[in-house]
């Protein structure tokens, strides 16, 4: 029999994970990704919010509706000449008496490349299964809930929202391009068509998935030499004991499923 037992029911586990997830620092990363045919630079900050905890014996903690909220700054360069038709003023010739035929040169406009930058925020909900991992590392006992399988993230709505945001951001930028007026709608449509839902999903997926797939939620962390009482005077030094072993599992103790942590100690 274990010397020390601590247990949480699902309601308690929910509160524990609420707190543990809320205390996690926001995730941050920056880099480049393929946004359809474009290479987009980004920086992203993401924060998680706990969902509903389901304890599944013997060792699974399932979080239903784990929410990922993120905000991102992204930018990508766009070569308009690749999506808009060439705009040329044709050669015009005039016959002038006594002079002959005079022609203006044909003039073609070069579409200047533009950079589209936009902030984008969204969220998604997912369900993850976590398993318990127990480690004694550097004199510190830790019990963590760790995501082992990469979850399937439903990025469809976020991708649609990203395309709409890109369209909204592109319009004022393109309006500053000379002579684009008649082609504005065409340009925006072309950008969205080039990226498409698949491009947006392919961009968001590799950025957001690691926030979930690498998730480690700390459930317990205590030094192996556990301080019972601090030193209060020269004649009353601190009191401590040694935590020799720690174990954790999900148990079905009818009628409840419980997260149970056990420990053995020595003086």
């Amino acid at each position: 029999m274990s010397e020390i037992i601590a247990a949480l029911d699902e309601k308690g586990a929910n509160k524990l994970l609420d707190t543990a997830i809320a205390e996690m620092d926001p995730f941050y990363r920056e880099g480049e990704g393929n946004l359809g045919p474009f290479v987009a630079g980004y920086n992203i900050t993401a924060k998680l919010t706990n969902g509903d905890v389901d304890l599944i014996p013997p060792g699974t903690i399932r979080i239903v509706d784990l929410e990922v909220d993120w905000s991102m700054e992204l930018s990508f360069g766009l070569d308009l000449s690749s999506i808009l038709p060439e705009l040329c003023l044709p050669e015009i010739c005039i016959d002038i008496p006594c002079v002959g035929t005079v022609c203006t040169p044909s003039i073609c406009l070069d579409w200047q490349p533009v950079t589209i930058s936009l902030p984008f925020s969204d969220h998604l909900k997912t369900t993850v299964d976590l398993q318990l991992a127990i480690n004694l590392d550097g004199g510190q006992w830790k019990v963590e809930a760790v995501v082992l399988a990469v979850p399937e993230l439903q990025l469809g709505p976020a991708s649609t929202a990203l395309l709409a945001a890109i369209a909204a951001a592109a319009t004022p930028i393109l309006l500053m391009v000379p002579f684009i007026g008649p082609f504005l709608a065409m340009a925006v449509d072309a950008i969205i068509a080039l990226i498409a839902i698949a491009g947006a999903t392919g961009f968001l997926g590799p950025i957001i998935t690691p926030f979930i797939s690498g998730l480690r939620i700390e459930l317990y962390s205590q030094p192996q030499v556990f301080e019972v009482l601090p030193a209060t005077s020269a004649v009353d030094p601190k009191v401590d004991f040694v935590i020799d072993a720690v174990a954790a599992e999900v148990q079905h103790n009818a009628p409840e499923d419980e997260l149970v942590l056990t420990a053995d100690i020595s003086a």
Partner: peptide, 13 residues
């Protein structure tokens, strides 16, 4: 259950 009607249980042998 260890927790019975409460959310948390703890025991020391």
């Amino acid at each position: 259950s260890l927790t019975e009607t409460e959310a948390v249980f703890a025991s020391i042998h």
